[in-house]
Amino acid sequence: MSEHFEPVIIGFTCNWCSYRAADLAGTARLKYAPNVRLVRLMCSGRLDPTFVMKALSDGADGVLITGCHPGECHYVEQNYKTLRRYLLLRRLLQGMGIAPERVKLVWASAAEGAKLANEINSFVEEVRALGPLGWPQKLAGNVKEVEVAA
């Protein structure tokens, strides 16, 4: 693992809370690591686990899933469904030999720009510590060993 490993992370955001938190972080000129690239969904409930697999298989080293706090979902209760899928997804990843810590779920309301920025920063460090996932390279057969889940 190189000393200067910069992880690439895909972040899924909810249109009503965390995407707006990202907007707010911007308006407030908060600074955070440039490693995360965001995808806007209408709701974290839209998150099909396939999206996470797609991101990892396309070369992302980690995936951040963000949504409204429990009880604050714009669509009443869909974030609870996200939570369930997230827990299942982590077990699935473990079964595939991928550290489940590469996927993280964070709640951030539209008012929590600072929280989102902090969560991004700490997740970048967590994924940096895990090292590169390198799934595309593995798929291409260049790398033989499979990461052992923690």
Binding site: V8, I10, R37, K54, G59, P136, A140
Partner: peptide
Amino acid sequence: IDGLLMDVNPVS
């Protein structure tokens, strides 16, 4: 997602 990761995933 493909587009966002174009730089790290020349494969796809």
